[in-house]
Amino acid sequence: MSTALRRYPVLIALCVAALFMIVPFLIVALNAVKSPAEYSQNGPLSIPDGLYVDGLKDFWERVDYSQKLFNSLLISGFVAILAVALSVLNAYAIGIGRVRGRTWVLAFFVLANLLPQEALVYPIYYLSKEAGLYDTRLSVIIVFTVIQAAFGTYLLSSVLGEFPREIIEAARIDGANKWQILWRIVVPVSRPTLGVLAVFFFIWTWNEFLLPLVMLISNDNQTVSVALGVLQGQRLMDATMTNAAALLGVLPAIVFFLLFQRTLTRGIAVGAVK
């Protein structure tokens, strides 16, 4: 009995803490549906009188939000697929092929993964201008495919290092060549891990800021993150517009979160120790 009574304070404390984490989202949602007049009269904490969606609509049209969403989806989607493919190829050679010098090759990918983007950003900006790729979505796709594949190679090499050798031997005896073993056996068997990787690559790329900010200057190419970040940096938005921007920025994240919740909060364990 006494322990039953003692349990609740802990639960309540944790619930209050959790509430604090999501309160910012609630306030934003609350204020995104208020009219400017109502906002200036009643302030940010009042309950809205009705649903005012003109602010959201205005903002959507003003920043051409459909285009931004499309750009983000396009870039993140391609990066997720291409980076997983590149990681698989690398990891196949390192983890299963056990190529000579693999320790060094792996160390190289780890280092690449640790480098801060600040140490790459100016040369990438300069080189992409030289190559005529500046301000294209393709340039961002290429750069992030490689950056994400650094992490993917590291993770997958260790996963494939423990791939059951008997299966590969059996396929080889049946006459399968290396490509067939890769596509018909290794990839299908490791599909759950590849899926987790793809989800992480997608969301990481969606959230990236520095490189897209530098590389994508024209409105038609910008991602959601860059467009919203630049708008905020210009300090030109009024309260209603800021909230519309915030709500429209938060919504995709919440959708991904609900879609991938299991992967995100448990799949991370794949990357964590053991």
Binding site: F25, V28, L228, G229, A239, A245, A246, F256, L264
Partner: peptide
Amino acid sequence: VAVLRACFYLPQVLPIAVAGIVWSWI
């Protein structure tokens, strides 16, 4: 546990630019 963990983890999936907008307004 799952619900509470989700609440704490939610800001992690938010683009930092969006988190910045939310907080600079708050």
